[in-house]
Amino acid sequence: MKRAYYIFYKDFSSELRMRFALNALIMFVIVAVSTILFSLANEKVNQNVYAGMFWVVVFFSAMSGLSRTFVSEEERGTTLILSLIANPISIFIGKFLFNLVLLFFINTIIAFLYMILFQDFSIQNWDSFLLAFILGNIGIAGSSTIIAAIISKANVKGTLYPVLAFPVLLPLILMLIEITKSAMEGNPISDVEAELMVLISYDIIMITASVLVFDIIWRD
């Protein structure tokens, strides 16, 4: 468990020091949100559209940023060393934690941007939205990390990542959009109980499966 933390810390501190990916990711978010801003400029749009657009931007930012953890290891050639110093479970958890923190950071920025720029994106019921936000981020991080591990061994990594990740993340995103819509309307949390249950079960299932399966992917 300690090693997982060290792996996480190594990625985290190297990212903080050099910020390659972080800057690009933040710029991506700004560009994406601006594009939506321009295209929906003076249109009167149904509030539910903003819910969908929010998670769309979250999804594509995740696709931009989360594959780095494994792809950079392959590119720098440090995969072998990594597999020598830690067992697969620790490696996965370490990378997962890094992706989770990155995701939380980026998604909070996206959420703030949305709330400032789009008046219609107003959350009436914060309970359900925050719960969905936290659970959703865990789920996205989990699935994205394991898919990142899969594509890190492939040739055309960049374009392959969203292709593989989309079907896997879709149930999660659909649920998140539903909960966000409900939160925007101000419905009580009991309305979205079922969706939240789906989120929780998704998180548990995907993370358990990822941990079990990671070993097979990682072995060269």
Binding site: I147, L170, M206, A209
Partner: peptide, 21 residues
């Protein structure tokens, strides 16, 4: 062979959600 088998497992895990969603 190895990676496509793994992906098929992971993708399969998400399908029950569709059947119940």
């Amino acid at each position: 062979a190895r990676l496509s088998a793994i992906y098929s497992i992971i993708a399969f895990l998400t399908t029950p959600f569709f059947i119940f969603i």
